[in-house]
Design a protein around this nucleic acid. Sequence first.
DNA 1: TACCATTTGTCCGTATGTATG
DNA 2: CCATACATACGGACAAATGGT
Lengths: 81, 81
Amino acid sequence: MIDHESSTPVYRQLADILAARIKSGALANGRPIPSEVQLQQEFGVARGTARKAVAALRDAGLVHTVMGKGTYVGPAPKRPG
Amino acid sequence: MIDHESSTPVYRQLADILAARIKSGALANGRPIPSEVQLQQEFGVARGTARKAVAALRDAGLVHTVMGKGTYVGPAPKRPG
DNA sequence: TACCATTTGTCCGTATGTATG
DNA sequence: CCATACATACGGACAAATGGT
């Protein structure tokens, strides 16, 4: 899980965990990843840290975010389908 | 259209679009503007967002609303008839 | 009278975006 | 990095008002 004593930032640890779940297929393409609130509960981090982890995944092109709905595995589709 | 990536809120973008249509005369005085359902279909926003845009126009004095009927360009007449 | 479709009004829950300390 | 607060947005459900059948 998360090691708060590690020199690796917590948000980076969480981003790596989620990236691994995506690569393994545990989080399938097109499916939503856990919400920020769920992440903060599951991993015991603040919401701001969960957001930063998700932002890292987004910058890496692994997920896309829709405000008011959630964050989904894969790139954003042009057509809402 | 609506830019969900913009820093300007969606409801504000929609309000500006409708205000421009009013100023240009595309939506003439006394005529109804599109219903909330039509707005959410045409612009791909939630009804709550469409409502907030219309409320902004109402606060600006550009339109007036009649429950059960619709929202019309211009101020509310004191006595309809 | 009773429906029925349309439209606005309200409330709820959930999720992301931003800002401050 | 945590905690809090508020803004913005989506989605659903139901109530109230209007006008027509």
